[in-house]
């Protein structure tokens, strides 16, 4: 034996690429920026009651004294921004816009994240299975997905949401219904990619060493699919936010008194058309933009960081 235990320790030290994934993600500029853009609104949503108390407001009190009696647009610059109302007030009702937004982040993101996590997780499991086993599973799943494509999903969602009994939590029902229609496209994309990975030589090489199916999926295939799953997740978030908004706009989304970013945006439409109060749209719109753009940036950077071949190209 020509090596000592010291040299083995040295080998192991030299091997370790040291910094964990999060550290490398933060060192990448787009990763750090994206993460901040995503986390600031998230934390604001989580701490909504605290933030609103610090502001000294609540999401429901109507400050009609801050509105122009003729037409109901907020008085003052930037839609009534002041020390008391950080982002101004909502036209006509006069409720505090900051409170509406931070509470809205809560409900919108809870639903969008919930639906995206459920649908992408299911798509990842099904897609990987399609890619690995192929054959009849691929044929059956492919036909089911075709059927789902032809199915009028939005009509179905509207119908379901219209008949949900009032005692059921609408948020949870929305999550389930959105997830039910959200898995098809990601499952097909992941399935195609998994099939391509399954056909690569290193998978055959692993099979030739006698590796069991689970090890081949876990060690050989999944690392090659992770980036795609992350990006699909980041891409499905904004879609779900906007569908919730659309459903709220149609009156079948969340209950009328629950703040929701999408509802704020759709309510603000007439005010931006007339130009009477553009800030009503700009503030919640900026928050949606931050979340969506941040999720995309962070997802993209995460994929780069996890791929050893592009790791050093930061």
């Amino acid at each position: 034996m020509s090596w000592s235990s010291v040299s083995i320790a040295e080998i192991q030290q030299a091997e370790g690429r040291g910094t964990p994934v999060l550290g490398r993600l933060l060192r990448k500029r787009s990763g750090a920026v994206g993460l901040v853009m995503l986390i600031v609104p998230l934390v604001a949503g989580l701490c909504a009651p605290l933030l609103v108390r610090i502001e000294g407001q609540d999401p429901n009190t109507m400050h009609t004294d801050l509105l122009d009696p003729d037409g109901g647009r907020p008085l003052g610059a930037f839609g009534g921004v002041s020390a008391d109302h950080w982002l101004g007030v909502v036209p006509v009702t006069g409720v505090d816009l900051f409170a509406q937004i931070v509470y809205g982040i809560r409900s919108s993101l809870f639903i969008a994240f919930g639906a995206s996590i459920l649908s992408i997780a299911f798509a990842a499991v099904l897609g990987t299975a399609i890619g690995y086993f192929g054959g009849w599973l691929n044929a059956v799943a492919g036909r089911v997905i075709d059927f789902m494509f032809g199915f009028p999903g939005l009509m179905f969602v509207i119908a379901v949401m219209a008949i949900v009994p009032p005692e059921m939590p609408r948020g949870l029902v929305l999550v389930l219904v959105l997830a039910f229609f959200g898995w098809t496209v990601p499952a097909r994309i992941i399935g195609a990619q998994a099939g391509a990975v399954n056909a690569r030589a290193f998978v055959e090489a692993a099979r030739a060493t006698g590796a069991p199916p689970w090890q081949i999926i876990r060690r050989e295939m999944l690392p090659h699919l992770f980036g795609l799953v992350v990006v699909l997740f980041a891409m499905s978030l904004p879609g779900n936010v906007s569908v919730v908004a659309g459903l709220s706009f149609l009156g079948v989304g969340l209950r009328g008194d629950v703040p929701d970013l999408g509802k704020l945006l759709s309510d603000s439409l007439p005010w931006i058309y007339s130009g009477a109060d553009v800030w009503y749209m700009i503030f919640p719109g900026a928050v949606v933009f931050l979340i969506v753009f941040g999720a995309t940036l962070a997802g993209d950077a995460l994929r780069d960081v996890l791929d050893v071949r592009t790791e050093d190209a930061a």
Partner: peptide
């Protein structure tokens, strides 16, 4: 035939070899 194709590009040599034993 092609070692660049038959070795998983996301695994270090150590991981590749360890996986044979793990199998």
């Amino acid at each position: 035939q092609d070692p660049l194709a038959s070795l998983n590009p996301l695994q270090t040599v150590r991981q590749t070899l360890e996986n044979v034993f793990r199998a």
